[in-house]
């Protein structure tokens, strides 16, 4: 192993990769949430389609998309690796565990929450991203994503599954946002409060906006 892979495969290196890919995926959430929130203009999808078309066809964005996929895969791979190694580090479990107040259930359940988000992502990409990119590749043109949203979110079961996805994302971010700064060594008395505040606000606001999309469409607030 050369020095670089040795660092990245060490226990601290894994935290480092987890934190960097996590923050990268957080930056993706900002863009994704912003573009999708264009549906709230309630203009028959005109603004949304305009920006959706830009994101789906711009060469630079499409190139960055490859980086996004790599970011997702690394984050998922590291997460599964951590889950396995940490489980193996305690071969015999305690018969009785009482978690201290500071140890939050969502912090202990990042693997489970991540898996729920992954299951959601499989469903979500099967709804929009995969058919759209396939269609672009085969036919050379995009699918009517706005109309697809209106159709798909008529199914109450799918709306509920999307809400569960948003809820998992909320808990995952509540630990992940703040945790990534600690992993990168950014624990500083002057900035900790800001990091915690921004992290909590982000974890609430972004999943809430996402959750409002299927809800608004299902209740016909958006046509």
């Amino acid at each position: 192993m050369n020095w670089f892979t040795k660092i990245l495969t060490s226990s601290l290196g894994k935290k480092f990769v987890m934190a960097l890919t996590g923050l990268f995926l957080i930056s993706f959430l900002v863009i994704h949430c912003t573009i999708n929130a264009m549906i709230f203009f309630n203009d028959g999808g005109a603004t949304f389609t305009h920006w959706g078309h830009f994101m789906g066809t711009n060469t630079i964005i499409r190139t960055l998309e490859i980086g996004l996929i790599i970011g997702f895969l690394l984050h998922i791979y590291e997460g599964l690796l951590l889950w396995k190694q940490n489980r193996d580090a305690r071969p015999v479990k305690y018969s009785y565990v009482k978690h201290p107040e500071k140890s939050k259930w969502y912090s202990r359940s990042m693997g489970l929450l991540g898996t729920l988000i992954l299951l959601f992502l499989i469903m979500h990409t099967a709804h929009f991203w995969i058919p759209n990119r396939t269609h672009q590749f085969v036919e050379g043109e995009e699918l009517p994503l706005y109309q697809m949203m209106l159709d798909i979110f008529q199914n109450p079961l799918i709306v509920v599954l999307y809400l569960l996805g948003c809820f998992s994302l909320f808990w995952h971010l509540l630990h992940g946002f703040r945790s990534s700064f600690q992993s990168l060594g950014l624990n500083h008395v002057k900035y900790n409060k800001t990091i915690t505040f921004v992290g909590t606000a982000f974890s609430i606001v972004v999943p809430f906006i996402f959750a409002m999309m299927p809800i608004s469409i299902y209740f016909k607030w958006i046509q």
């Binding site: 190694q85 580090a89 201290p100 107040e101 500071k102 140890s103 990042m110 945790s179 600690q182 992993s183």
Partner: peptide, 22 residues
């Protein structure tokens, strides 16, 4: 020290905070 810690088979930190509490 980090290298030795990893060799000993301890798990990885995920910033839960139970250690600090206990």
């Amino acid at each position: 020290m980090v290298s030795q810690m990893d060799e000993e088979g301890f798990g990885n930190c995920t910033n839960i905070g139970a250690c600090e509490a206990e």
